[in-house]
Computed example of a mutant assay.
Amino acid sequence: MNPPELLGVLAESFAGTDACRTLPMRLCAACVDTFGAQGGALTVLAGPGDQVAVSTPGEYEQLEPLQEVLGEGPVPRAIGEDRLVALCLGDVVDEYPVFSHLAGSVSGDATAEATLYAVPMRVSPRVVGALSVYVTGDLAARAPDLQLVADAVGTILLRRTTLGDWSEKASFHQATGMVAAEFGIRPDDASAMIRAHAFARSTSLLEVADDVLARRRFPGDG
């Protein structure tokens, strides 16, 4: 499939998504449909040591926040090394031992048969995030197609999204600021503390951020 045809398929898939959903969610769903995947996610860098993601609902949706909390997995590697990264979710690998060990228990037995493809989203020479797709087939031969779609989606996201399109972004940044002020530390260190608490509590970054903002738990954890 040549680039115009592929982008035409993406556009057709996008047109079939729910117009009431946010642009990132619609683009994510369109990518999943374009590649016949069983799940997917879009992750965008939001600052030093910070990122925000949306995922399609289903058995794979917890794997994106798990990588974010752990700081390891195909998505961080794809972003950091600017290359496509694939992982069979049934394997435990040395590159990301904790994530690969936990992936099956987080999302169930079905993940063992799936492969996660993480593709950097590039806008000009800069990597701005990653597209993730979870498939039970083999997309290795379609690496150029994955890269083309990832770059197109990254460009659209940077040009057209607003703060309100990313449900977790505002509260996470506010919570980071509160923790930084409370402990007198840098924002990236405050972000790391929030991630550590999320991992220790086996919960999401959004839940920890909401607790911080509501002053229910952490800082202090009294």
Rank of each mutant, 00 (worst) to 15 (best):
R142P: 02
T176W: 00
P65M: 03
A192H: 14
R195F: 11
A170C: 02
L146M: 09
A140H: 10
L146P: 02
V153C: 00
E68T: 12
T155R: 05
K169V: 11
H173R: 12
V119E: 02
A143Y: 13
A140T: 14
E81Y: 08
V128Y: 06
V123C: 13
S105V: 06
S132Y: 00
Q62D: 02
L89F: 03
E68N: 14
P120Y: 05
G80V: 00
G154S: 10
G80H: 15
R160W: 13
Q147G: 10
G184Y: 13
V135L: 02
G129N: 06
L102Y: 07
A86L: 15
L116C: 15
A143R: 12
V98G: 00
A170D: 08
E168R: 12
C88L: 01
A150C: 09
L70M: 14
A180S: 15
T136Y: 11
R77S: 07
M121V: 01
R77P: 02
E64C: 14
L63T: 03
L146N: 06
L102K: 10
D189T: 02
A114K: 06
R195N: 05
A110N: 14
R83Y: 05
D165F: 10
A110I: 13
V153P: 04
E182Q: 14
V98Q: 08
R122E: 10
L102R: 14
G154L: 11
E182M: 10
V135Q: 04
G73V: 07
P125C: 13
V106K: 14
S191A: 15
V179P: 01
V106G: 00
V179I: 14
S107N: 01
M193I: 05
V69K: 07
E68M: 10
A140E: 12
V69W: 00
T161G: 09
G73R: 05
L66D: 01
G129L: 07
A140S: 15
V135W: 01
D91E: 11
S124W: 03
M193Q: 09
V75F: 01
V149Y: 05
A143G: 03
E81W: 07
G80I: 05
E64N: 13
D145C: 03
S124D: 15
A180E: 07
G129E: 13
G177N: 09
M193Y: 04
S100R: 01
G164I: 03
D138V: 02
K169R: 13
R186V: 15
V85F: 09
R159L: 08
A86I: 09
P120M: 03
L66M: 01
L146D: 04
P125I: 08
V127S: 10
A140Q: 11
G73C: 00
E72A: 15
L131G: 05
